[in-house]
Nucleic acid binder design. Structure first.
Lengths: 317, 317
DNA sequence: TTGTAAGCGTTATCAG
DNA sequence: CTGATAACGCTTACAA
């Protein structure tokens, strides 16, 4: 069994409350006693019991992060940023995915929640926030008093990007991603909106974020179809398309320029290197977690800036 | 404020203990009362307070996972598997990386720990395990009573693989990874050992797990240097090498066969497709977590099989 | 079958 | 400056 504060108090020859005050640097304890108490604590390898502390103070020092799954680079980057922020502020990350998430929220195992998972019911979140716990939603809508939100504004990013590219390329087509992807939909909207602004008809090919869908579309493209620029909803599709076009003897970007989205590692290893858009997910996660923790300390969310993005111009477009 | 068991008891018109027994399906409560109690709980949206429960039962229902960082595919796969196991068994994952990890362990916020991080001090782990908490170490050594271990046996996997390839290829060289990588070192040892068994001299090139290091080595390789097979410590290096060799006009695998390790997505998108070795990290994580949870339920670790691996033969070797 | 009461390890209030 | 003591919400003997 580990030592309790009782043991420390006994060894130091003081009362429990004095020991508690000393260990928490609170109130008035003489330096002499303090020293004795700290020595005793060290000797007994004392560490306060988290559950007891939580019960008393109603603070768990944990923030819950609820994600849909662990796979893919996005989650690990976001988590990395959040972990960094949590560490800086002395909080722990309780990461959960799946059916147990709602239980953790309901049981108040956390001081606040970051939701990156559309499966958790609104009702649970509202209930939680109503008990004065802060919640930050990522890429999802919900209004409420202690609820804040942050989204990757794919639509706006793509809108601006396409308008920019329009200066150089006349005919711009797009390969979309799957319909159930938040990101794919936003990117598509941004594309459509940009063309609308310029009074142009959108040309849309249906992809699914895979390398193979890029290849398949490349195989169907006839010479007359070729746009000046093909904007792909993600890099994998763009690279698949590029390989297929090269195979058919087309020159990139002369015959058709190609660009993607995400800036995956492989964009640098294809020939020509792929022009793409990078989102700084790590920084985003960091800012989001900081905002939540700020709420825990001051009852106010820190403003979360839009996730940083950067257009990376390379040879492909 | 959330409802407590007291509120439930009052609303149902029973004592606290009766309510507790009913809600935990324990002891003897008449069906009639039980029904009343459950209805009251539902009405009040009652959820037991985790801290109080933990304090009393000395069980947190959390298992701690301590990793070195979130980046890279390995951690997300391992975490995914662990999360799945935890979910199946009703446990939560407290994931932490960095300086706060030791605090979580010391404060007994978790019923058991999985350590995938060489930075946590042995002393902390020993102390923890001495208080009867189970610990599983991944890719790391430490002996103890409630301590179990599991490692990816890179050395053995590579040893067997190279012996196998030896039947087809005479001269086998290797590109290593960085010296501070557990995986790189094991793979190198396996290679050396296999050649030794066959009484052959190892031929070793120093890489660093990057695509660029594969290119650089390819540029230095002269025609006379070419081995029959180049075994690369990871796929990125292998692919870099392959691209460079192709650029120089060599035919893969005719002039030199190439194989890698990890089975990253891109191994299927190069020409020729890369022969490589896949480790099932998700399953590994799942098994590890299951083993720990089994200990929590029965005081015995479940046997963890060696992480499953599979040699994936493709056209490059 | 149900209720009373003690106690888990803390913190915090309030006398001494 | 220090020390009883109550309380946090829950579980669990044990008594009724």
């Amino acid at each position: 069994m580990s030592a309790t504060i009782k043991d420390v108090a006994k060894l130091a020859g003081v009362s429990i409350s004095t020991a508690s005050c000393a260990l928490n640097e609170k109130g008035n304890v003489s330096d002499q006693l303090k020293d004795k108490i700290f020595k005793a604590a060290k000797k007994l390898n004392y560490h306060p019991n988290a559950a007891a502390k939580q019960l008393k103070t109603k603070k768990t020092n944990n923030i819950g992060v609820f994600i849909y799954g662990f796979s893919g680079p996005v989650f690990s980057e976001v988590l990395e940023g959040m972990n960094k922020a949590a560490q800086e502020e002395g909080y722990n990350l309780l990461v959960s995915s799946g059916s147990l998430s709602e239980k953790i929220i309901n049981q108040r195992q956390i001081d606040g929640a970051i939701i990156f998972d559309s499966h958790i019911k609104d009702e649970v979140l509202i209930n939680y926030s109503l008990s004065n716990y802060p919640v930050i939603l990522l890429d999802r809508d919900l209004e409420g008093d202690n609820i804040s939100r942050s989204i990757i504004n794919n639509q706006e990013i793509v809108y601006n990007f396409i308008l920019q590219m329009q200066k150089k390329y006349q005919k711009i087509a797009m390969i979309t991603g799957p319909n159930d992807s938040y990101n794919a939909l936003g990117r598509l909207e941004g594309y459509k909106e940009a063309l609308k602004t310029k009074n142009l008809q959108p040309i849309i090919y249906k992809g699914d974020f895979t390398y193979e869908s890029g290849i398949a579309i490349g195989q169907k493209l006839t010479k007359e179809d070729l746009p000046d620029l093909m904007f792909c909803a993600n890099d994998e599709t763009a690279i698949g398309l590029m390989e297929e076009m090269k195979k058919q003897g087309y020159k990139i970007p002369e015959d058709m320029a190609i660009c993607g989205f995400d800036n995956i590692l492989w964009t640098r290893h294809v020939e020509p290197q792929l022009t793409t858009i990078a989102i700084n997910h790590t920084e985003w996660g960091h800012d989001v977690a900081k905002s939540l923790i700020n709420y825990l300390k001051t009852s106010k969310f820190l403003e979360i800036g839009d996730p940083k993005h950067e257009v990376i111009y390379r040879a492909s477009a």
